[in-house]
Simulated scan of single mutants.
Amino acid sequence: MTDTTIAGGPVERDPELPGLLLRTERDALVPLLRATAPEGFAIRTRACPDWTVREVLAHCSAVLTRVVERRYEKDVFSPAANQRDIAERADWTDQQVVDELERGMTEAGSKIARAGGILDGIALGEWVHAGDVREALGEPGAYAGAGLPLALTLLARITREKGQVPLHADLDDRDEPLRFGEPDGQRPPARYIGDAPTLVRLYSGRPTDGAGFELAGVEAGELNIYA
């Protein structure tokens, strides 16, 4: 069940979806990184301006390694822990970081599947960070590609479970609106009209300058699942 519909009611958890999203993104991102010159890894990202491409990748690979090895110390995903993980890889070559990332994207899915849903958001976060990297490297369709439908399905369930504002999204390439958030019977659903990558940017707190979209019934900041 890797293409769960999100046009209607509650989104059922597909335990295999996070792993499929990671492997799909692996197949797109890793070849790009293998062909990237050293100066590309030193570019700062817009979404995480304190981090370079290399540092975003080091963060991503470290998180996946923790999942694969089941190492969850206290505050394991805190800002301080993230910086420690990056510092621990400071002496690695760029390609060693990519090696670890590739292994993690290959092996973490089975561990996430068995965790009952608590780790599913990691796969979405890894996919969003891959978009951050593609954007920094000047690649078109930074938050699009083959993983986008999987990411939208996962995003719909995560926003529902977080009890976020209900939203009907009329996407440019879909006939029926997609539903996000959790209806509470008190607030009418907000509406989004635009493309799917821009909706992903809104939900992940990424810059949307220059994007054409309409948003009614909710402020953009209310959608950010990472706020």
Rank of each mutant, 00 (worst) to 15 (best):
L154A: 14
L154R: 03
L155K: 00
A156E: 04
A156N: 02
R157M: 09
T159F: 00
R160S: 10
K162A: 11
K162G: 02
K162P: 00
Q164V: 02
Q164N: 02
Q164P: 00
V165P: 00
V165A: 12
V165T: 15
V165R: 14
L167K: 03
H168T: 05
H168R: 15
D170K: 09
L171V: 08
L171H: 07
D172W: 11
D172K: 14
D173G: 00
D173P: 00
R174L: 14
R174T: 07
D175V: 14
E176Y: 07
E176C: 00
P177C: 11
P177W: 10
R179G: 02
G181T: 04
E182D: 13
P183W: 09
G185Q: 12
G185V: 13
A190G: 07
R191E: 14
R191Y: 03
R191L: 14
Y192D: 01
I193N: 02
A196Y: 08
A196C: 09
P197C: 10
T198N: 09
T198E: 06
T198S: 13
L199I: 10
V200I: 15
R201H: 08
R201Y: 09
R201P: 01
Y203M: 14
Y203R: 06
Y203L: 15
S204W: 08
S204R: 01
S204Q: 03
S204L: 02
G205D: 08
T208W: 06
T208E: 05
D209T: 15
D209V: 14
G210D: 07
A211M: 08
G212K: 13
